[in-house]
Structures are given as structure tokens and as C-alpha cells.
């Protein structure tokens, strides 16, 4: 029997605005992502892919449908349960890095530990995460002293700090040059293949398609290609 999917979406709907200005962003999206899969969400701007990613990460709320991630039904879950899930099992990587400028690299990486009870060896784990992205020597530096690629690597280290089961990335290479973007893509591939981390990556990057086990194309709030919800997926590292 196949394991429960990491992400299970059924008829997810979302809109912004009210009345005449109301815009339907997601129109009944259904999707199933098994453990260990790396999927790429592609589509034009405004197609709803970032909104879908945010809903999967619990950063935004669906108006309708069912969202079940890592066994937690978002509709029934209380807000603190969602926060704990984000803290312990989900990592986020954003296009704008979203590092806190007043903290050092190590401070940024260990930030999730601030919201976890009984976190141990915080600095040691933070240094390990920084080392993994090749920035072990940058622990005491502030984000303002780093290049774009280095900032994104710090953001990835932060996302990996709690050894997440699911990594959600929104245009992670969008602000990087081609060479750095390639490094990041390779890192995600390694993360997926060696650690078995499930990745959902919103991207415009064509190269991402080459490492993704599935490419899902969205248009006007709906999945138009690669929607295999309900199908059997083995996924996992290639």
C-alpha cells in the first residue's frame, strides 16, 4: 500500500477582493504529491502558483476545498498546530530571500528554534546548516554584507535548520544570476535525491524542469498540465 501523500489538495479555491473586484485565483485545484517527489509549478504570472504554494505552506487560507499536508487537515487544524507544522516540518525559500537584516547569518538560520520548545544544540545545528550551503565562515556576518546568491543560500540553510520533510520554494532562483541559480538547482536536486525531502518549487526556470519528477503547469487558477491528482505516484529520489 502506498504511503499517504505529503500534499493532498482537493478542489481548492481561493479569491481576492470583493464584489465586482473579486478575482478568482484558484479554481478548484486538486493535487497529490507523494513523499520524496520534486515537483515544479510553472505558469504565467497571476496563474495562481504562488498562492497555491502559500496555501500548501499554511501561509494563506483556502476558501474552499480540502488541504491536507503531512497528515494535517488544515480546515480542522488550529492556528498553533499550523505554526508548529511550519516550524518543524516545512521549510520555505523565497525569491526575495526574506532574511532579517538585524540578525547575523547564524541568527537568521537559527530563527526557527526561537519558536520551538526544548530546542537543543541550536548554534551547532545552525553552523551545520550553514556549512551545508558552503557558508560556514559567514556565520557572524549580516545579510547586508552578502551577495544575492549567498543570501539565498542562507535562506536555504534556514529552511533546512529543522530538517524539514517538505521544502516549499517560491521562485528561488528569480533574483540570482544564471550560474548561482544553477548551483541552487543542483543543491535542491541533491537534497531531494540524498535526503528524500519533498520539494514543491514555483519557478520560471526552464532548467528546474530537468530535475523535477513532475512539472505542473497552471493557468488562470487551474492546473492544465501535469495534474495527476488521484493517480498513483511512486515519486522518491531518482
Amino acid at each position: 500500500m502506498a504511503a499517504d501523500p505529503v500534499i493532498q489538495l482537493e478542489s481548492v479555491r481561493k479569491s481576492y477582493g470583493e464584489g465586482a473586484g473579486k478575482t478568482q485565483v484558484l479554481r478548484g485545484v486538486s493535487l497529490s504529491v507523494p513523499r520524496g517527489e520534486l515537483i515544479a509549478l510553472v505558469g504565467q504570472s497571476g496563474s495562481g502558483k504562488s498562492t497555491l504554494l502559500n496555501i500548501v505552506g499554511g501561509l494563506d487560507k483556502a476558501e474552499g476545498g480540502t488541504v491536507r499536508v503531512l497528515g494535517l487537515d488544515y480546515r480542522a487544524a488550529r492556528e498553533p498546530e499550523l505554526a508548529r507544522l511550519r516550524n518543524a516540518k516545512i521549510g520555505f525559500v523565497f525569491q526575495a530571500f526574506n532574511l532579517l537584516d538585524h540578525l547575523t547569518c547564524l541568527g537568521n538560520v537559527t530563527l526557527p528554534a526561537s519558536f520551538a520548545r526544548g530546542a537543543k544544540d541550536v548554534d551547532k545545528r545552525g553552523m551545520e546548516a550553514l556549512g551545508r550551503v558552503g557558508l560556514g565562515d559567514y556565520a557572524a556576518r549580516k545579510p547586508s554584507e552578502l551577495s544575492g546568491g549567498q543570501k539565498q543560500r542562507v535562506a536555504i540553510a534556514r529552511a533546512l535548520f529543522n530538517r524539514p520533510e517538505l521544502l516549499l520554494c517560491d521562485e528561488p532562483t528569480g533574483n540570482l544570476d544564471s550560474a548561482t541559480g544553477h548551483e541552487v538547482i543542483e543543491f535542491f536536486k541533491e537534497l531531494n535525491q540524498k535526503d528524500g525531502v519533498t520539494l514543491m518549487i514555483v519557478t520560471h526556470e526552464r532548467r528546474m524542469s530537468t530535475i523535477a519528477q513532475r512539472v505542473i503547469t497552471m493557468r488562470d487558477g487551474a492546473i492544465v498540465e501535469g495534474d495527476l491528482a488521484g493517480d498513483e505516484h511512486t515519486g522518491g529520489p531518482a
Binding site: P80, R84, R86, F92, N98, L111, A116
Partner: peptide
């Protein structure tokens, strides 16, 4: 937003 993303609850 970053704090919430890394696990801060509303409380």
C-alpha cells in the same frame, strides 16, 4: 511574515 513562516504562532 518571516517569523510566521518559520513557525511563530499568532500568540
Amino acid at each position: 511574515g518571516v517569523l510566521r513562516a518559520v513557525g511563530a504562532s499568532q500568540r
